[in-house]
Amino acid sequence: MTTRDRLTIRLTVNGEAHTVEISSNLMLVDLVRERLNLQGTRVACDQGACGACTVLVDGRPITACLSFAFTADGAAVLTIEGVAGSDNTLDTVQLAFHDSGVPQCGFCTPGMVLLAKAYYMQQPMPEGADVERWLDANICRCSGYQVFRRALHSTPPREDAP
């Protein structure tokens, strides 16, 4: 690989600043899983169809399996490891998922948590129909999706909503 193919990017991941030298064809999911050792982000379909690899880049949900790592240069990335509080207290979405019994095999769960979290970050006054349109992006093969409906209809809007 020529030097042109390597570059240095700076980004924050779960609030922590990183400077990493990467190859230009490194995918964001591999940066997160293999270089930063944050294995909670899952690789499932690897084609952007299922959303198990969803992470938030500057608050926007993206499929990390289809995103080049360099596109996150200068961005703030949130992975599943950064969602719970520092003492491992579950955040609002995680708690709602926990109480409703969402995880089955659990492989889609981190992506679903982040997708729902992004929605609540962007929609101060959430509505059921809207959140379902969001969740349509990701696939869960174990559940009948009803658990997500039950969980999200029990989730209050985020505390700082106007």
Partner: peptide, 21 residues
């Protein structure tokens, strides 16, 4: 009793480990 799955927290916080990890 409908207790949550014993691995629920690990699966929700990303700390659950699968063979692929």
């Amino acid at each position: 009793q409908s207790i949550p799955d014993v691995d629920s927290r690990a699966k929700l916080t990303g700390s659950a480990r699968y063979t692929s990890d």
